[in-house]
């Protein structure tokens, strides 16, 4: 009973904060609403016994990604541009289409609900082994190659983000190491014949 209460209250908070992300004019308000929806979905994941992923969601998203978003919003200083009309002309039609999408998805989910195979015994796995232990065991044995590819993707993201935003300064006096190494000593000094002066 308490789980239903938690689920319905938290999911209504989640839906309201997602609507706030879309509807706010100021991007700072949208970012703060997105933080609220991340934390709320983290709590809902705790209800599904995905403790590790819930903590990772809150740490990585709220702690890193949303702080990065807020940094960019503050750095670009776009608050004064938000006075214009915020929605374009296709907005009513888009909302209509979106409502149709919701209706279709919910209809499919609830009509064909017998076709979703669910395990008959939902065991409480947290009582035997922790979710983190199970996930780590699975990740470092069967999915080790995927894990390393994920690390490579993160490395790639670091390199791309730095190379996109790095602005080389002009008139910068730097050493070019390859030219310094490849100097030919014979070309360094030139002997000039001087005529004798009397």
């Amino acid at each position: 009973m308490i789980k239903e209460l938690i689920f319905y209250s938290f999911s209504s908070v989640l839906i309201c904060s997602s609507l706030a992300v879309v509807l706010f004019r100021n991007p700072v308000y949208s970012a703060v609403s997105l933080i609220l929806s991340f934390i709320t979905s983290g709590f809902l994941w705790l209800l599904l016994e995905a403790e590790f992923l819930a903590i990772v969601l809150i740490l990585v998203y709220v702690g890193a990604v949303m702080v990065l978003f807020l940094f960019v919003i503050m750095m670009l200083n776009i608050n004064k541009e938000t006075e214009k009309s915020s929605f374009n002309s296709v907005a009513p039609f888009a909302v209509f289409i979106g409502l149709i999408i919701v209706a279709e998805l919910i209809t499919i989910i609830w009509i064909n609900s017998s076709q979703f195979s669910t395990s008959s015994t939902v065991i409480q796995q947290s009582s035997q082994m922790g979710n983190t232990l199970l996930l780590g065991t699975e990740l470092f044995t069967n999915y080790i190659l995927d894990f390393e590819i994920a690390g490579f993707i993160l490395l790639l993201a670091i390199i791309v983000a730095i190379s996109l935003t790095l602005r080389p300064r002009k008139n910068l006096k730097t050493q070019v190491a390859s030219e310094q190494i490849n100097v030919d000593p014979k070309k360094r000094m030139k002997l000039v014949d001087l005529k004798e002066t009397k």
């Binding site: 997602s18 879309v22 949208s30 907005a91 919910i106």
Partner: peptide, 20 residues
């Protein structure tokens, strides 16, 4: 499904900036 549709609508109706 509801959250997904809110995200889709948000992408379409937005005209302000790319951050949203």
């Amino acid at each position: 499904a509801i959250i997904f549709s809110i995200g889709v609508i948000g992408i379409v109706i937005n005209r302000k900036n790319i951050i949203i």
